[in-house]
Simulated assay, not measured.
Amino acid sequence: MSLDAYIAGLPKAELHLHIEGSLEPELMFELARRNKVSIPFDSVEAVRAAYDFSNLQDFLDIYYAGAEVLRTEQDFHDLALAYFRRAAADNVRHAEIFFDPQTHTDRGLPFGVAADGLLSGMKAAETELGVTSKLILCFLRHLDEAAAIDTLNAAEPWLDRIAGVGLDSSEVGHPPSKFRHVFERAGHMGLKRVAHAGEEGPPAYVWEALDVLQIDRMDHGNRSMEDPRLIERLADERMTLTVCPLSNLKLCVVRDLKDHPVPEMLRRGIHVTLNSDDPAYFGGYVNDNYRRLADAVGLSREQVTLMARNSFEGSFLDAADKAARIAEVEAWAARSA
Rank of each mutant, 00 (worst) to 15 (best):
L3I: 10
D4C: 12
I7V: 15
A8Y: 06
A8F: 01
L10G: 12
E14N: 07
L15R: 08
H18Y: 13
G21P: 10
N35V: 10
S38A: 15
P40Y: 07
P40W: 13
V44H: 11
R48G: 06
S54M: 14
L60C: 15
I62A: 11
Y64L: 11
A65R: 12
E73N: 02
D90M: 04
H94D: 02
A95L: 10
E96M: 14
P101V: 02
G108N: 10
S120M: 13
L129I: 00
I136Y: 07
L137V: 01
L137I: 06
F139Q: 02
F139S: 04
L140Q: 00
A147T: 06
A155I: 05
D160M: 02
A163Q: 05
L167N: 05
L167T: 04
S169M: 04
P176S: 03
S177D: 07
G187K: 08
G190T: 03
L191W: 09
V194M: 14
A197V: 06
A204F: 09
V212F: 07
Q214L: 05
Q214F: 04
G221L: 04
N222Q: 07
E226P: 09
E226S: 10
L230W: 04
I231T: 07
R233Y: 09
L234Y: 00
L241V: 02
C244S: 14
C244I: 01
S247N: 15
V253R: 05
V253Q: 08
R255V: 02
L257R: 13
P263H: 05
P263M: 09
Y281L: 06
G284Y: 08
V286S: 12
Y290E: 14
R291D: 09
G298M: 12
G314W: 05
A320G: 07
A320S: 13
I326W: 06
A331G: 02
W332Y: 11
A333T: 03
